[in-house]
Simulated scan of single mutants.
Amino acid sequence: MNTVLVNAAVNFGILAALSALLYAAPGPLLSPPAVPFGVRVPPDKVHAPAIETQRRRYRGPLLAVAAPVTVLALTLGAVFDTPTAGAFGALPLCAGAAVLWVRAHRSIARAKEEDGWYDQARQGAVTDTSLRTAPVRFPWVWTLPAVVVIAVTVVVGAVVYPDLPDRIALPRRSAGGTFYREYTTSVWIAFSLVLGQVLITLISVGTVHGLLRARADLDVARPATSVARHRRYLAVTARSLMGITALLNLMLLGMSALMWSDTRSTPLMLVVIGVPLLAALAVVTYLILRVGPSGSRLPETADEENTGLVPRDDDRFWHGAGTIYVNADDPAVLVPRRVGIGWTVNVGNLRFLVIAASVVAVATGLTVVLAVS
């Protein structure tokens, strides 16, 4: 009975959180107001009737899809005794949201073109060269917790390694629940999660380093004010990402301890994985509620006269209903998202393609090494 309740709670939690996220996606909580459904619009059209209509047409059907999907996932989770039904239920829910999003995107884009929303607007662009010449400093102090957790994991692993059995069991997930697969004990297997810690930390450091030099989403109407706010946004985001990295490393430390001690307790596994993930979710929630997309909720520290300019209409570079940026002439690898908080990559940038190929090569190499071992 306890297992059934736990599975139901996990499945419901997954779908409830995802439904709330998808429901809030087109609003100012997760997307910049000037790009509803991924379409760039002038500031005076943010609450245009065409946009508000599409928000209602998106959210109503989304809730209508979420309800039966949740009921079905809870039923399957109870029948097959698995907490993964919620993850499978997420697929049709995301598919339905994508269809509704594309419909809203096309309707708003058509209204913008037919009504000439940009015909009388004075378009402009602004940049801050000091982000290159004097960038926000990397928060090295906030990297120390992640490094310390790795060091602790290595030391504990080195102490217990001589006493490990000839074979080590690693947990795997399937539709039927958790099962364990045994591997011959080796350094690569015993310290496989340490490699994961190192890889996560290196990716996080590289990502933060890139974000601090990424193209800023500045307000052409109030450039000086937006520059100051963007710098605070970068500092808060960088510290938060390194904090999340430490939490993920802590989770892998706990999983390593369970592996080395051959502990197969499902409740303990849920605690080891769930607590750090919930803490990381709390950090993300803080960024959403208190910081906002591109730092839009951070308090302004200066008063500046409005220039009367509006951001340039750059829809031609955004594909996939405003989710994919492709511009080979833009030197920026990372650009502010139109959907959600944070940044996305410039798929048309050669440097991104090289970096992506390198990451894939390293991940593939580690997978092959572990498989051979």
Rank of each mutant, 00 (worst) to 15 (best):
T266L: 11
I189S: 07
P293C: 01
T185E: 02
L298P: 05
W142N: 08
A321V: 05
V345F: 10
E114S: 15
L370G: 07
H319K: 01
A361L: 15
F138N: 05
V335Q: 04
P43T: 03
A371R: 10
Y58I: 04
L193D: 03
S240C: 15
A66L: 15
I189C: 03
L18P: 14
T225Q: 15
D315P: 08
T143A: 14
W117S: 01
L72F: 15
D330L: 03
V155Y: 12
T245A: 11
R337D: 01
A67H: 15
T129P: 15
L72C: 15
D313E: 11
T263G: 12
N327I: 02
I108S: 07
D217T: 08
G342T: 05
F191Y: 09
G27T: 14
L252K: 02
S226V: 05
V368W: 01
G308T: 05
T285D: 09
H209L: 12
T201F: 09
P162V: 12
V41C: 06
M269L: 14
T82C: 11
V148M: 08
V205H: 04
V156F: 15
H105F: 11
Q120P: 01
T129N: 10
G60E: 14
R297D: 15
V102D: 11
L5N: 01
D128S: 09
T344E: 02
V283M: 02
R137N: 04
A34V: 02
T207C: 09
T184H: 13
A97M: 13
G206P: 00
L91N: 11
S373D: 03
V291W: 07
P336V: 03
V149P: 02
S130N: 06
S174P: 06
L278Y: 02
W101G: 09
R338Y: 00
P92F: 08
S19F: 13
V4Y: 15
L100C: 10
V126W: 10
W140M: 03
R239M: 12
V159Q: 06
A235V: 12
V272S: 00
L76F: 08
L258D: 07
T133K: 07
S265I: 00
N11I: 04
V148A: 13
L199M: 02
